[in-house]
Design a protein around this nucleic acid. Structure first.
Lengths: 137, 137
DNA sequence: GGTGCCTACTTACCAATGGATAGTAACTCT
DNA sequence: AGAGTTACTATCCATTGGTAAGTAGGCACC
């Protein structure tokens, strides 16, 4: 025994942390928000004032597959960030809209987008510098 | 001919959009920021004042695998968000620290984290409501 | 003096995630 | 009657990310 090596300690830390993570909903929420499609969908819905339809979102975001679009919308609906209203007209019509909570969130995402737009040049420069110096090796 | 169906139009939209996306660095940057590990690493570095070591970050974030930790740190370094300093002491020592740009970004991520902490209850309630109503079906 | 540990990774493999494409239901239009 | 509409599922496959083990190079312990 006494095989309490670094590997074991790491293992144990992981198990403890897992329990912590699973029980900490803030982390879950952070995960949800830190999703590519979530930010794109929320900002699309924020830009358009008024509801958007499934196909409209698909066209707006375009890079998204129907699968991911549905999946992400469902999870956002579950979290109370978007609302989904089905109008059983001739071909069904489904409208998605930000809830007040979602509108609140969209402010943050807009801030992130603005940051990205403001600082993109610095990042691009940093990348060029980095690439140049590693090529030179 | 004249097979210009919905599928074709969608295809074309996708191609156009792809070109747009590839050429739009803001979107790339948004992608980078919208990453689980990025937000965790940046906020870990922001919390600790002063540099953190590789193993320290690994312990702090714990759920991260060494692979992802290295990968994410490299990309953040490339983007000029963290700085990496190697001290060739007895066992090598590597320190990571936020650059000014990174510190700037961390404000945003802190805001997101705060939002998550403030609104988690609403989200949990929304989830319960959603799950209850779909179970009832 | 050799076994083992330290740090900071890299590598190989494998499961899960996400994307492309096609299909479905219910109905209308031609 | 066949094609088109909307809002999705379903299937398959590529890519991503996780797990675990290995690597380098030096020191400490036995």
């Amino acid at each position: 025994m006494a095989t309490t090596t670094a590997a074991e300690r790491r293992q144990q830390a992981r198990v403890e942390y897992d329990a912590f993570l699973k029980s900490c909903p803030t982390n879950q929420l952070l995960d949800r928000i830190s999703d590519k499609w979530v930010s794109l969908i929320v900002s699309a819905l924020a830009d358009a004032d008024g509801p958007m339809r499934y196909s409209g979102l698909g066209r707006r975001i375009a890079g998204v597959s129907p699968k991911m679009l549905t999946q992400t919308l469902r999870s956002l609906e579950r979290d109370g960030i978007v609302s989904r209203t089905v109008t059983p007209s001739v071909p069904v019509r489904v409208d998605y809209e930000l809830t007040p909570l979602g509108a609140n969130l969209s402010c943050l995402l807009t801030a992130v987008k603005d940051w990205a737009e403001h600082h993109i040049e610095e990042v691009v420069e940093a990348r060029e510098r980095y690439d140049a110096s590693s090529e030179a090796s």
